[in-house]
């Protein structure tokens, strides 16, 4: 067990544990934010795991999650729009904290990889992760009201 896997274990245990508690209790707006947070936390954990196992191909999992996680949140934002419109979720603190964690992990892992094509891939994953997360949060808080709802 090396430091990378230890860091991934802590991130998974603490982060996803908190997200699970948030998704299981409380009003709907908190549950939706917790679901968004869980995908945004697991993606850096997968990067740490791929570095820990020294298998660069495991990075593909993080790439797929960085793409599909915000898509899943957008599904909820669209189909639960009527229920969320009454009291929209506002969780910019959590969103930016998780985005900062993702940025730190991507920075550390790409520094360990060194300048190469793999590092470019890691940076793309980081950009997708943070961008997707911010867009999903904004959609949840009703930021795109002009877009058709039905």
């Amino acid at each position: 067990m090396n430091g990378w896997i230890l860091a991934a274990t802590v991130a998974l245990g603490a982060g996803v544990g908190t997200a699970l508690w948030g998704v299981a209790t409380g009003p709907l707006r908190r549950r939706v934010v917790a679901q968004n947070m869980s995908t945004a936390l697991v993606c850096p954990a997968l990067l740490l795991l791929s570095q820990g196992y020294t298998r660069p191909s495991y990075v593909d999992l993080a790439l797929v999650l960085a793409l599909l996680g915000p898509v899943g949140t957008l599904v909820f934002a669209r189909l639960l729009a009527d229920e969320l419109a009454d009291d929209p979720p506002r969780a910019w603190g959590v969103t930016w904290a998780v985005a900062g964690f993702g940025a730190v992990v991507v920075g550390v892992v790409s520094a360990a990889t060194g300048p190469s094509r793999a590092m470019v891939k890691l940076l793309v994953i980081g950009a997708l992760l943070i961008g997707g997360n911010v867009v999903a949060s904004r959609a949840l808080s009703g930021g795109f009201r002009g877009v058709g709802r039905g």
Partner: peptide, 15 residues
């Protein structure tokens, strides 16, 4: 919502 978290956690388990 819980099921989508479950899907992500299961993917981590497989990894």
């Amino acid at each position: 919502l819980v099921l989508s978290v479950l899907g992500v956690v299961l993917a981590v388990l497989f990894t």
